[in-house]
């Protein structure tokens, strides 16, 4: 590798690490906010702002890396075993659907990705909740969660848009 290429991959690694750390902090912080579902481990999904930002600047591969790293570390630090499943379901569903759609969305429409991501995140959460507690009755929370997901998703989408403006450089360039 030439010195230029080495420093490029180091910069990429650094940036991914920083993104992971940021996502992790948000993930842990949002635990302080009220729980959308009456089950331990469910989360609002605010950390998806990083997922959204990364998808539009770094491509699916790196985004997935950051997502999985954040989920793994997050559930380790949270101390609750169930957090892993909720975060995986929420994060992966959000990631996959937004990735599928990101080509049809413009940067200005990042909030749309946010809303969709928020909805998907919460659908993932409720699916896991029903599976883990074996209480199909929880499905009654679905409309609440979709509405809530649209709200938090809008928020994360706008934040991601803000991030994109302040930190516009694509990772791939590095």
């Amino acid at each position: 590798m030439t010195p230029l290429q080495t420093s490029a991959s180091v910069r990429r690694l650094t940036r991914l690490a920083l993104l992971t750390a940021a996502a992790l902090s948000i993930h842990l912080l949002e635990g302080l906010l009220p729980n959308p579902l009456p089950v331990p481990g469910a989360k609002l999904g605010l950390a998806n702002v990083i997922t959204l930002y990364a998808l539009f600047t770094a491509g699916p591969g790196d985004t997935l890396l950051v997502l999985l790293a954040r989920i793994l570390l997050g559930s380790l630090f949270s101390g609750r075993g169930t957090t892993l499943f909720y975060s995986l379901a929420g994060g992966l569903l959000c990631f996959s659907v937004v990735w599928l759609l990101h080509r049809v969305l413009t940067r200005r429409q990042l909030w749309v990705a946010g809303v969709i991501g928020g909805i998907c995140h919460n659908i993932g959460q409720i699916a896991v909740a029903i599976a883990l507690t074996r209480t199909p009755a929880l499905i009654v929370y679905l409309p609440w969660l979709i509405l809530c997901g649209m709200g938090t998703g809008l928020f994360t989408g706008l934040c991601a848009r803000f991030l994109l403006e302040k930190l516009p450089e694509k990772l791939k360039k590095w």
């Binding site: 940036r15 750390a21 902090s25």
Partner: peptide, 21 residues
């Protein structure tokens, strides 16, 4: 840009110490 990202991350990490488990 990198410095900004780093600054943001550090702030978030510091905020984490406020949380009480």
């Amino acid at each position: 840009s990198l410095r900004r990202l780093a600054a943001l991350t550090v702030c978030l990490i510091l905020l984490c110490s406020c949380g009480n488990s």
